[in-house]
Design a binder for these strands. Structure first.
Lengths: 343, 343
DNA sequence: TATGGTACCGAAATCGGTTTCGGCACGTTT
DNA sequence: AAACGTGCCGAAACCGATTTCGGTACCATA
């Protein structure tokens, strides 16, 4: 008895050995009893379970993992924890894994290849069963290679190697869907103000928008206006657009922040939204869309779904059902007052 | 030779045994060679290191951990991954730990006590060396108790048990500092529009503001206006404030979002900022403050520092240097155009 | 040549579990 | 009464690393 109680004070926590001793059985039997194995007498099992609870025994997963060769942990290697894209993806993944028994080891490489290698090494040393790599933009990123001892899934930023598994938002289609929403409202003179052309997301959404216009035998008003992902740029671009005398009845902004700037500039110029000009953005970022006046129609890129899908594919890959290739997650247009009055 | 190469295909990765065999030494010697222990001949060491690199050996930290009784991992138990407070804290912690060798196991309990217990159990099973518990608001939260086998530090939301270790923002002082900034600009008629009175953060900042006014032999204009943490509330409250005929030369908003609403309403009413009325918020949330027109003066609560401090205290506690009690992290006033013209 | 000292190496124990396999005890069949 | 089957339990091997401790080889000294 006393030995069992001593275990607590003995720093090193309660072990199976302590439980076995307290129950008067061998460690082998204790193990079988607690794991529901066969060939254990009900009475014996009860004694063991009771002892385990009395000592509040927590099995050491490390010991189990070292035997099984599986740790039940995955590494999540992000490059942009700060940005607001990593987080929902992280949540989706944590969500999908949490339902099972997977735990998530988090690392932030902060866009630094050295740090990434360092963290990768640490994660592999901890024998993670798999890896999710989250990029900071939708531009392809270098592959970690195929020499990894565990499967990897790339989220948001696809791997440059398309035999890797990647899960990304479908930005082209997002651009198309957004534009089609505007067209469905009878708008025909659509301008597009968006982020830097160095961002794949900006280019792809623009491509999707142009495609939708072409399909309707129309064209965007003026060139696509590339700038920064900021309200300031939204304001500036809108002023320059309207100042040039262009006639528009809709402005498609490349992000919610840009859209806020657009709304701001339109209000300053006395243009009514959505009556004169409809406005919409991308990201469906709560604080931005809800605070806008009128509330902002936006395209939700479903980041959480990206995280969930990445997690699911990783779990499949760990189970031996690997799937290569890029998977695109579809977006959702969320209609609000800036395109449909009173919506 | 062939046996070493086989290890790779043998699923289970390369082990120290493989390295030892490849180098023609025993595992004991291999271990000593790789860990820089004494009594290893330089030539032998070289052979081992070379073999280790050739086989790209990654030591299994689990095996090491099971011996040492320390895993080099900490659990980060958050309740509000979605909110924008958890993230910077997380980053700060990840940052502080990453510098050492600590890895972070992330769990999101989503404000659910059952899930929290579940995750706690999982983390303890993984033998984390310590815990950081992040709350979703600054209101005290129930302690995990003192029966834990590892130290815990509470961040953002302090533990209700003040013999636990907590790191929180100093909201009272933040309210004071903000108000003093306004007073230092010669403003005397300050109104305060903030979030729900159910939030400790809202109450404490208000207390700090009132204290600063009292110290200057002044009083806030009207009662503290509690509402939601939204732009909409900021607009509504501002309109009601000015509509009541109250004369103000400064509005202290409880958050950047509320401040944006305040700015919006003021512009609609033709009130010049900062000439007629100075405006400031809390949180110093980049997309909000930079997009505002004029740019918004705000109080940075230094969440990253909170995360870093929590991590440091946890590391200390793990090393046996426990420190109980609540530690308050000071804020920083960031001055921009909404209070000082051209700043 | 015998002895002492030193440098280096390896067998074995250890950590905390899981699993295999051998064995004991008891009950049933012929 | 002997042979057999079955249910239950425990000794021991194992996973991959670390560390202790005993031993070997070699050189220097008496």
């Amino acid at each position: 008895m006393s030995t069992a109680e001593d275990a607590v004070t003995r720093r090193r926590g309660v072990t199976l050995r302590d439980v076995a001793r307290a129950a008067g059985v061998s460690v082998a039997t204790a193990s079988k009893a607690l794991n529901g194995r066969d060939n254990v007498h009900p009475d014996t099992r009860r004694r063991v379970v009771e002892a385990s609870e009395r000592l509040s025994f927590t099995p050491n997963s490390l010991a189990r993992a070292i035997l099984a060769g599986q740790t039940g942990t995955v590494g999540l290697l992000t490059n942009d924890l700060e940005g607001r894209f990593s987080l929902p993806i992280l949540m989706g993944a944590e969500d999908a894994f949490g339902a099972g028994q997977m735990s998530v080891l988090l690392c932030d490489a902060r866009e630094d290849a050295i740090r990434e290698q360092y963290h990768l090494k640490a994660l592999l040393g901890r024998r993670v069963d798999g890896l999710i790599v989250v990029g900071s933009s939708t531009d392809p990123r270098p592959s970690l290679g195929h020499a990894l001892p565990v499967p990897a899934v790339y989220a948001y930023a696809p791997s440059a190697d398309d035999t890797d598994a990647s899960v990304v938002p479908d930005n082209v289609n997002a651009g198309t869907q957004a534009t089609q929403h505007l067209l469905s409202l009878g708008r025909t003179r659509v301008a597009h103000i968006t982020g830097p052309s160095t961002y794949a997301a900006a280019r792809e959404r623009a491509t999707g928008a142009q495609k939708a216009m072409l399909d309707a035998n129309l064209e965007l008003v003026g060139p696509v206006r590339h700038g920064s992902w900021t309200e300031t740029w939204g304001r500036a671009a809108t002023n320059s657009l309207l100042g040039s005398g262009a006639e528009v009845d809709a402005i498609l902004a490349g992000s919610d922040q840009i859209a806020r700037g657009v709304l701001d500039a339109l209000r300053d110029r006395g243009v009514a939204v959505p009556d004169d000009v409809a406005v919409m953005g991308f990201d469906n970022w709560d604080p931005m869309v809800d605070g806008a006046q009128p509330m902002l129609t936006s395209v939700d890129m479903n980041f959480k779904t990206i995280g969930r899908r990445a997690a699911q594919r990783l779990v499949d890959a760990i189970a031996g059902r690997s799937t290569a290739g890029v998977e695109q997650v579809e977006c959702t247009v969320v209609v609000r007052g800036s395109t449909v009055k009173g919506a």
